[in-house]
Design a protein around this nucleic acid. Structure first.
Lengths: 220, 220
DNA sequence: TGAGTTTATGAAGAATTATTCAGTTTTGGA
DNA sequence: TCCAAAACTGAATAATTCTTCATAAACTCA
């Protein structure tokens, strides 16, 4: 299969002519198509090329190996999630805590659900394809954005600490994934969106209250 | 690769002699070992057999194909999780709501973290190996146990509805997974355990309060 | 138009892998 | 001790799959 470096996730060359750009786009889309229709372990470079309407050779002209192809698609998807969260955080600055949480959670769930199929299909590759590093980086961006936003909340004394933010993000992302993977019905998804807001809001306030208690009198 | 039925997850035959039982155990253990040391896509039947100290033929005497091998290991792991949650639910009956939640969450996190490595390694196969069905079944068992326990809570008017329970479970399981996969430090894990209790507790009470408000005067 | 560059082709090569089965060894009871 | 059942062996088989490369087509712009 592969014998050389397995950390070569970078594209081999970038398209110059329009024709090539179209090709690369088609290959990307075909990757997702195959992933969805044929499943993870039937995704072969030949099949992707066929679905994209090009030959295998063409595929290898832009991606040095199969992994880099999946890496590109995964990176693309995660970028959208990150942008959605960052945008939401920017918009909700200086609003009350409850509003902040609602806006962010809804933005996240919506972004994730817009292409449920892709989220789902990509998860199974994350491990082999440099996904953990990507996921970690996106998580960091999201938490940074959250932190910045929360510091502008007018109705709390001091912003939540990093752990609380990390937990909230993990709960939000994890619960969404969990529900997705267990074959969520549309009803369930709508409920998820609503309940996840309540969950994050109540956790944030509870966490702040706890901290105040601990500060005033530990073990009291 | 495989050409016949791909839903044949059942073992081919069960050991009679002690020797065979030892062999099957060794194969199970070797599967995990290889999964951890070599990674998911380098897990081959030959490699597993070698690590177990037997020949490939022996492996195929008990498992009809590679998938059934992984299925068995996954089922084993999930069974432990399910039992942990059910036991916790049984123990916490008739206690106050907050205690119930704490006991269950801690039991879940502990069970999951006892063999962090296995949890992590197995997730990447869940999709291809009949995992979703297994996961769904375990989730159902867990939620059933939770529901039964919550009905005995002395300090609430009426037990939470099924959606709330489902969300709580998703948040608990999902957040744990999320933290695990992002390379959790021991400190982070300890914090997860503590914060997840707060998160679930506050969600449960908030959810109950919301329901009361909605019942008394919707859109007020 | 035409030379030079970019892009596309797809059969062939090299490796790997899941699975079988005919034959050998071991076991446990009569 | 002896033998039938159980367990084990591992080379061979039959598929797949990734990746390359020599060749051909398409495009750009002077």
């Amino acid at each position: 299969m592969q014998a050389t470096a397995r950390h070569d996730f970078q594209p081999r060359k970038t398209p110059v002519q329009t024709r090539a750009a179209v090709t690369v786009g088609a290959i990307s889309e075909a990757t997702i198509q195959v992933l969805l229709s044929d499943g993870g372990h039937r995704l072969t470079t030949t099949r992707v090329a066929a679905r994209a309407g090009v030959s295998v050779g063409t595929l290898y002209q832009y991606y040095p190996n199969k992994q880099s192809l999946l890496f590109a698609v995964l990176a693309d998807h995660l970028e959208k999630i990150a942008v959605a969260v960052e945008t939401a955080c920017a918009q909700a600055r200086h609003k009350p805590l409850a509003d902040m949480v609602r806006v962010v959670v809804e933005a996240f769930v919506d972004a994730k659900m817009e292409r449920t199929d892709i989220s789902l299909a990509l998860y199974q590759f994350a491990a082999d394809v440099g996904g953990p590093a990507l996921v970690k980086r996106v998580g960091l961006r999201a938490r940074k954005a959250l932190e910045g936003m929360l510091q502008t909340a007018p109705d709390i004394e001091s912003p939540p600490d990093k752990f609380a933010i990390e937990i909230m993000f993990a709960a939000m992302a994890g619960a969404t994934r969990q529900v997705l993977e267990s074959g969520a019905s549309p009803v369930m998804i709508r409920n998820l969106r609503r309940h996840l807001v309540v969950l994050c809001q109540s956790y944030m306030t509870a966490q702040l209250a706890n901290r105040r208690v601990e500060a005033n009198g530990p073990a009291a």
